[in-house]
């Protein structure tokens, strides 16, 4: 199949950037979307042009490195699919595909389709952990965790940190990312001691970088791991309790 690709090109953070159009011919339907970009990049290189920079790593949908806006959708048209797992059979011969980097004030464009998502690390550093120094852990089976709680915690923990939730949100909110980690840890008995301090710190840090939730639900629809916005509700509830609980604390 033949594809017309409108790709965002930007030389660096201070460059204005613009769309450029490329014809990609003889695309196989079995190619992944990123392999189509690989093929185009090899051609550009041989033509003496600079290849399109994009992030990707595991190419099996688990590392969260890849992610671009494809025809206005984060990770493209297929639900529950990261960009690397999107195949060209999702498109038709002759299609024009527009590719753009994730956009948010906190996600600075580094080059072409590559953005800086380090704000996510700052949120985790603020409280996305259980304080347990190596060696101090008790016997693993000492604390039973009801199966359904463990399963729900896992649903939240499945987050791959790709940033699609922010990219898809009209407010550039990172509620789904933050809520998934807050909920994963708050749900487990191991994480309950730090529940309120964690929630407060993570949410407060999140709000230094990102917008607020207006309950559009776009994040859930874009999430390659289909994490539910119910976790956002859970985080909101814990945040009220946290502010009450932590009142007067230095």
């Amino acid at each position: 199949m033949n594809i017309t690709l409108r790709a965002w090109r930007q030389e660096g953070p201070s460059d204005e950037g613009r769309f450029e159009t490329y014809q990609v011919s003889d695309v196989s339907a079995d190619m992944s979307f990123l392999e189509m970009l690989d093929v185009l990049n090899e051609r550009l290189t041989l033509e003496g042009l600079e290849p399109i920079a994009f992030d990707s790593d595991c190419r099996e949908g688990i590392c969260g490195t890849c992610g671009v806006m494809i025809n206005g959708r984060a990770h493209g048209p297929q639900a529950a699919t990261a960009t690397c797992q999107l195949h060209m059979r999702s498109f038709r011969d002759g299609d024009t595909i527009t590719v753009e980097p994730w956009r948010a004030a906190a996600f600075e464009v580094i080059r072409d389709l590559v953005v800086d998502r380090s704000a996510f690390d700052r949120i985790i550093e603020a409280g996305g952990f259980i304080t347990v120094a190596t060696g101090s852990a008790p016997e693993a089976n000492l604390t039973p965790v009801p199966k359904e709680i463990a399963e729900t915690a896992f649903d939240a923990a499945a987050c791959i940190g790709c940033g699609a939730c922010v990219a898809a949100c009209p407010n550039s909110a990172a509620q789904l990312f933050t809520a998934s980690k807050v909920s994963h840890l708050n749900l487990l008995p191991q994480g309950s001691s730090e529940r309120y301090i964690r929630t407060e710190r993570m949410v407060d840090t999140m709000e230094q970088f990102f917008g607020s939730c207006t309950n559009h639900g776009e994040c859930e629809a874009a999430c390659p791991k289909q994490i539910s916005i119910d976790f956002i509700a859970m985080m909101n509830r814990d945040y009220v309790k946290a502010k009450l609980n932590n009142r007067g604390r230095a």
Partner: peptide, 18 residues
């Protein structure tokens, strides 16, 4: 032990044990 204490959600039985 360490991973469980960190909140790694290992699969569990209905009794809540690993």
């Amino acid at each position: 032990d360490q991973a469980t204490a960190q909140g790694v959600p290992f699969a569990r039985e209905y009794g809540g044990l690993l």
